[in-house]
Structures are given as structure tokens and as C-alpha cells.
């Protein structure tokens, strides 16, 4: 009945048995906080994001931070040797993590990362796609949907233009990218459930 944290946002999946549940959570929180701050810094650089109301900026970040992190950290999932690199720098095989209790979520994140990396996007394309992931007008709790929608459309047009210019013979890439959005939503939902269950535990 040992507890493991199979999220790569941890230094390692091993949990110190002498720590209380609260201490374990605090340590985990300490690990993912810098990554969340980086997402906020990224959002601030999206042209037009800071023109949205503060309420909507927070709502978009609350809803989309995990999805942005999945895209940004897709490279932690090494599809070839089936390993995951944790923040501490150590790699763990899928089999090892499976024995520690990982399941559907980690497998799904592997599949997602593999398909995303296979598209061979440049850093600029990946950044613009990440902005599209974050600025979604159908997130709950938005007070000015029209403004978010306008920014979302601008970003999607820019992404399509960039992809079309960089990959003139691969018109399906843009469509494939847009199809990644519902995949990310599903991962987000499963992740939230598991994380909340862990925190309660």
C-alpha cells in the first residue's frame, strides 16, 4: 500500500513514508508551482491576452493550465524507449510506473505526446498552438465570451497561416492540431479527478 506520485511534475515518484499527507501535498505543490507560474508568464506574452478582463484571464488560466503543461512537457514522455523523465531528471519506464499504480491517464498522455511530437512542429508553431489551447471561448465562467472568442479566432487564423506557410504540402497538420484540443480536454478532466482524489486521500 505504498504511495507513489506518478506525475512527472514531481522530483521523483517515491514518497517519503515519514511525511504527513499535508506535507506530501505541500512538497508536490512546491514542484508544480514554478511550472504554473511559467504558464502565466507565457499567457502574458500572448498578444491581446492582457486586454481581456482580469476575471477572464484567471478563468482561462484556471481551466487551461494543465493542458498547456501537457503540450509544453510532451518531450518528457520518450515514446521510443517508453520512459517518463521526472523533474528530478531521472527516467522511469512505463512498466515501473505501471507497477506504481499509473494507468489510463499516463498511457493517454503517452499517446497524446507521441502524436503531437510526430507532427514535427517548430518552436514557433508549438507556441502558437499552445496559445490556441489556452484561449478557448468555451471555458466555463467567462464573463466576456465575445472578447475571448475574437482573440481565439485571431490566434487560430495565425496558426493556420503559419502552418500553411511552413508545411505547404501537409495541409492535414492544421486539422490534426485542432483535433488535439478535445483530446486535451479529456486528459484535463481525468487529471483533475485524479488529483483531487489524491489531495483528499
Amino acid at each position: 500500500n505504498r504511495l507513489y506520485l506518478v506525475c512527472p511534475m514531481n522530483i521523483s515518484p517515491h514518497v517519503n513514508l515519514h511525511k504527513t499527507g499535508h506535507e506530501v501535498w505541500e512538497e508536490f505543490s512546491h514542484c508544480f508551482t514554478p511550472a504554473v507560474r511559467e504558464v502565466v508568464e507565457f499567457a502574458k506574452k500572448i498578444p491581446g491576452f492582457r486586454d481581456l478582463s482580469q476575471h477572464d484571464q484567471v478563468s482561462l488560466l484556471k481551466a487551461g493550465t494543465f493542458e498547456v503543461l501537457v503540450v509544453r512537457f510532451a518531450s518528457l514522455f520518450n515514446v521510443k524507449d517508453r520512459t517518463v523523465t521526472f523533474l528530478g531528471g531521472n527516467k522511469y519506464s512505463v512498466e515501473t510506473l505501471k507497477a506504481m499504480g499509473s494507468g489510463y491517464l499516463l498511457n493517454s498522455m503517452f499517446d497524446f505526446s507521441e502524436k503531437l511530437m510526430n507532427l514535427g512542429l517548430s518552436e514557433e508553431e508549438m507556441s502558437l498552438f499552445t496559445a490556441v489551447v489556452l484561449v478557448s471561448a468555451d471555458r466555463s465562467g467567462l464573463e466576456n465570451v465575445n472578447s475571448v472568442e475574437a482573440l481565439q479566432e485571431t490566434l487560430i487564423r495565425a496558426l493556420r497561416s503559419l502552418i500553411t506557410r511552413n508545411h505547404p504540402n501537409e495541409s492535414a497538420i492544421f486539422t490534426k492540431l485542432l483535433l488535439k484540443l478535445p483530446d486535451l480536454r479529456s486528459l484535463n478532466n481525468v487529471h483533475s479527478e485524479q488529483l483531487l482524489a489524491f489531495k483528499v486521500h
Binding site: S29, T33, V36, R37, V40, E41, K44, R50, Q54, Q57, V58, L61, K62, A63, T65, S192, L195, L196, K199
Partner: peptide
């Protein structure tokens, strides 16, 4: 748990990170 981000403490981190920027803008 209708608001996972708040329950997980994400909202607090996000607000603090954004607020620094908003204060800069006011300056």
C-alpha cells in the same frame, strides 16, 4: 469539487502571478 483549480490551489498561484503584472501596468 465543482472548481478543481481552486481546490488544488492553482487559482491562488495564478492570481499572484498575474497580479504582479497588473501592478506593473498600473505603475
Amino acid at each position: 469539487f465543482s472548481d478543481p483549480a481552486s481546490n488544488l490551489g492553482l487559482e491562488d498561484i495564478i492570481r499572484k502571478a498575474l497580479m504582479g503584472n497588473l501592478e506593473e501596468r498600473q505603475d
